[in-house]
């Protein structure tokens, strides 16, 4: 099973978290981790703690903001949501990712010549 899981590529977690928040509306860290797990169908090997590092980075850049709310357990939890700036950034990042992914895909398709 282990060899079927993929590591999260450096720098992509931020984009995944941002997009998740954009799609789902305000979520706490646990909720984000669940959503990514669900979407990835258990393919990604995610250290869930790293979600919080991504959240902090995004917050420092002003792309998301946080508010205290109540979790399913009825305890205090921080809920994150995308800011307007974050929405704009998401477009840019997504576009960038697609470009890079496209290039990588093309490179991987290169046939051995000669």
């Amino acid at each position: 099973m282990a060899d079927q899981k993929s590591e999260v590529l450096q720098g992509t977690l931020d984009l995944m978290v941002l997009k998740t928040l954009f799609a789902m509306g305000p979520l706490h860290g646990f909720g984000i981790a669940r959503r990514i797990e669900q979407v990835s169908d258990g393919v990604l090997d995610l250290n869930e703690g790293t979600v919080y590092t991504a959240l902090l980075r995004l917050q420092q850049q002003g792309w998301i903001k946080s508010e205290w709310g109540t979790s399913e357990n009825n305890r205090r939890a921080r809920f994150y949501s995308v800011t307007r700036q974050g929405t704009k950034q998401l477009d840019r990042e997504a576009e960038n990712w697609e470009r890079v992914a496209g290039v990588i895909e093309k490179v991987l398709r290169l046939e051995r010549q000669g």
Binding site: H28, G29, F30, A33, E48, G49, Y52, Q60, S71, E72, N73, R75, R76, A77, R78
Partner: peptide
């Protein structure tokens, strides 16, 4: 963040605790 280190530390502790307890549940 530098100015509010301690406060942020406590907030993070709380988040981690909550996250783990939700996973446990």
């Amino acid at each position: 963040g530098q100015a509010a280190q301690r406060q942020e530390d406590e907030a993070l502790d709380e988040e981690i605790r909550e996250h783990i307890s939700l996973l446990e549940a």
